[in-house]
Computed example of a mutant assay.
Amino acid sequence: MTNTLVWPALRYDDARAAIRWLVDVLGFEESAVYGEGERVDHAQLNRPGGGGVMLGSVREDSSISQVPAGVGSVYLVIDTEGELTGIYERAVAAGATMTQELRTEDYGGSGFVCRDPEGVHWSLGTYRGEETGGE
C-alpha cells in the first residue's frame, strides 16, 4: 500500500450499508472494520493503487460527533478511462444520484460526481492534479 497522508473521515447513519455501497459500487476494499452488530466504531477502506477513507457510525462519544452523517465531498483519482466508465455504469445501475454526468473536463481528464445513499458527494475522475515544482 502506498503511504497515504490524507484520510477523509466520514460518518454514516448506516455505516455497514455505506461500506457495502463503497465496496460494490466505487471499488473500495475493506481493510478493517471494527464494531459490533450494526454499529461501526471504525472502518478503513482502501482504493486499489492507493488512497482510502475512514468511516464509522454516528455516535455521541465520537471525537467528530458534531459532524452530521452524510456530509462530505471526496475526490477519487481513477487510473484509466475504462475503469472510470465501469464505475460510472455501476453507480448508475445502483441508483446513485448523479450531480454531474460523466464528461471530459477542459482542464484535463474525465470525471463525474454522484451522491451515495446518505448524501456524501463522490467525485471520480482521471485528473491527477497539477505537477508539483520540487525535486
Score class of each variant (00 low, 15 high):
residue 10 L to H: 07
residue 93 A to L: 02
residue 110 S to A: 11
residue 119 G to F: 11
residue 45 L to T: 14
residue 134 G to C: 04
residue 40 V to I: 11
residue 26 L to E: 06
residue 113 V to G: 04
residue 78 I to E: 12
residue 52 G to H: 05
residue 13 D to F: 08
residue 129 G to A: 03
residue 16 R to E: 04
residue 98 M to F: 14
residue 32 A to Q: 10
residue 44 Q to Y: 10
residue 53 V to F: 08
residue 101 E to R: 13
residue 122 W to K: 12
residue 8 P to E: 14
residue 76 L to I: 15
residue 94 A to W: 04
residue 116 D to M: 09
residue 21 W to G: 05
residue 29 E to S: 10
residue 125 G to M: 03
residue 101 E to N: 09
residue 59 R to V: 00
residue 46 N to H: 10
residue 102 L to D: 06
residue 44 Q to W: 10
residue 82 G to N: 13
residue 69 A to V: 11
residue 2 T to Y: 05
residue 76 L to H: 07
residue 89 E to Q: 14
residue 123 S to Y: 10
residue 85 T to S: 14
residue 7 W to E: 01
residue 37 G to T: 14
residue 40 V to P: 00
residue 108 G to P: 14
residue 80 T to M: 13
residue 11 R to P: 01
residue 100 Q to R: 15
residue 41 D to V: 14
residue 42 H to N: 13
residue 108 G to A: 02
residue 111 G to L: 02
residue 66 Q to W: 01
residue 101 E to K: 07
residue 19 I to V: 01
residue 24 D to M: 06
residue 118 E to W: 06
residue 50 G to H: 09
residue 126 T to L: 08
residue 37 G to I: 12
residue 4 T to P: 04
residue 109 G to R: 00
residue 46 N to Y: 06
residue 120 V to Q: 06
residue 107 Y to N: 03
residue 100 Q to I: 08
residue 119 G to K: 09
residue 124 L to E: 11
residue 118 E to T: 13
residue 98 M to P: 00
residue 66 Q to A: 02
